[in-house]
Design a binder for these strands. Structure first.
Lengths: 337, 337
DNA sequence: TTGAAAGCGCTAACAG
DNA sequence: CTGTTAGCGCTTTCAA
């Protein structure tokens, strides 16, 4: 059906090896021969079969990206960074959206094992893919990169931000603004991000010798709706608090909605800070204070490292990258009560 | 290095053909043999090499999606619909983001020609890939689907909404609210969507016997910034108008910003309607009236049709899908001046 | 019901 | 500098 390398070789009066050489710019070919071959390729409209090339060369130039939910803007931004860097290095990316199902995440690993992709980037913190598993795979020679946490295993590039640190900054900021009773809205409890942000929250309270009260903690799910309900439960307890640290912006949007319904004015009655610098945070009124993580850059960097490592066939000098996140103070937390 | 089908065959004391049969659930295999093979597969941790399978079976179970810019939420939503349907049919999707470069769009077509993907979905209206080219490729047996416009060629499933119709609805709505002088903010001029929305705008004016004034048209670029500047140019002309139809929500956000800077109050001083039902449109104050296109559903539907067509090896009964879009009237256009 | 063997289209030794 | 040829690992006739 399609025209193949053999046909081109025949037409150009050379061997398939020569055609392959000009296609891949490998080996040496006379300028005259090259021209002859290129002409044949052109005129016959030849497109080398990529699947045959994959098999033979043992490379697909594809990278898989496993995310738990591409609808979450945090993940989407990281993926954009990955995609762009991959593109500039001539790699394609396959999005593996787990639709929030842990089993799906594991299933996508098959693409790595069966050689559909040359490497896999994990951008998902649900823990369905354990550190041990990642380590084992890396030992077997599979290329894996991790965004959002640190894996203690040679050859696995990792990039993440310091959740504890920026969470402490958020609490410091609240305290500076005069708040003393600060609630914390967590994401789903088993997420590493939830845990570390809570840790930072507690640590900052301790530093300021402020009491930690379990009742001021509620679990959401990192979504608008979950934030809404979690906040309602918080209010329902009847405890006084004047500020809320929401583990991400999505949930903060839920808090905005609940406040609107209950006649609570932000920031006069309640100050709030989120995490992610979701685009909406800049457009909502009052603008939401938030923590900006360099999502795009993180995606780009991990991809670059992973590709370098694959091609240089040796571990990169630096394997673990901890990047800083910045607290953006906007109107939602600017005026102390 | 890796373990292959031959090894499994040896271990299970059968031929490779038999292993292949149990892997693919094809042919007939005794229950006893099947078990024996599956056990071997399991214990040896065998993962069939996908690239070899691709080559031999002439299928990759991958679909490419060419979008001009994945940052545009309209495209991103469509892609989500595509991804989900593809997933449910066991296809993977490769995002081909052209980063707004026309040449990149064309370049990605290579993935279709070189058999990296089984099909390609075009979600890009910049026109870099001509209708003629699409037709030719379809004739050669390549599987192509188009979102956002109608291609007049057998075997090319298309899905799109009626830009003219909903644009007329927008103008009707403005007129109902008492507006008589309505400006139009176009996207980039060569986009089909821009053209058709302008057409609807003009048609509605004509129906109501309202004059069409070229000076009330400005070109943006479908982005916030472009909308901002286009609106400033519009204002700069000094002509009176009380409503703006923005060809998409992004540009409308730019208008909001310009209005805020100039002390123009929406909707009291100026009514505005956008297109896309961008998520931000619901969170901004006042909430932006907009046209909701069933983006997700469009992506899902085209994917389903394309996959069906590929596998049934015949054209589907229905090839062209025109879906309706709904005008969502919110505060930005609710009160007549 | 199972096995042997012929490729899928390409790359990369190796030989000349 | 160019050509010959042996696979890459799998699926799929065809024969047994």
């Amino acid at each position: 059906m399609d025209i193949k390398i053999k046909d081109v070789a025949k037409a150009a009066n050379v061997s398939v090896a020569t055609v392959s050489r000009v296609l891949n710019n490998s080996g040496v070919v006379t300028e005259r021969t090259r021209l002859k071959v290129q002409e044949a390729i052109e005129s016959m409209n030849y497109h080398p079969n990529a699947t045959a090339k994959f098999l033979r060369s043992k490379k697909t130039m594809m990278i898989g990206v496993i995310v738990s939910d591409i609808n979450v803007s945090y993940y989407a931004e990281i993926v954009k960074g990955i995609e762009n860097m991959a593109y500039s290095r001539e790699y394609k990316v396959i999005i593996c959206d787990a639709h929030n199902q842990k089993e799906e995440e594991l299933g996508y690993l098959e693409l790595l094992l069966n050689r559909t992709v040359d490497a896999m980037i994990l951008v998902s913190m649900t823990g369905s893919i354990s550190d041990e598993l990642i380590g084992e795979l890396a030992d077997k020679g599979y290329n894996i990169g991790v965004v959002g946490k640190c894996i203690d295993h040679a050859g696995v590039p990792c990039i993440f931000t310091d959740n504890v640190k920026f969470s402490m900054n958020v609490v410091h900021h609240f305290i500076e603004q005069g708040h003393r009773s600060i609630a914390f809205l967590s994401g789903y409890p088993d997420a590493l991000d939830s845990y570390e942000r809570l840790e930072g929250y507690m640590k900052a309270l301790r530093e300021h010798r402020l009491p930690f009260r379990q009742e001021l903690i509620e679990n959401g799910d990192f979504n608008e709706k979950g934030g809404y309900h979690a906040f309602l439960r918080l209010i329902g307890k009847g405890l006084p608090f004047t500020a809320v640290y929401s583990a991400n912006d999505e949930m903060a949007l839920g808090v905005y909605r609940a406040c609107a319904e209950m006649g609570i004015t932000i920031p006069k009655d309640l100050a709030i800070v989120g995490v992610d610098n979701n685009r909406i945070s800049r457009y909502i009124t009052p603008r939401l204070s938030t923590v900006d993580q360099p999502k795009y850059a993180m995606g780009a960097l991990i991809t670059e490292k992973l590709i370098d490592q694959m091609n240089e066939n040796q571990f990169k000098e630096q394997r673990v990258f901890k990047v800083d996140s910045e607290l953006l103070v906007r109107e939602s937390s600017r005026f102390a009560k």
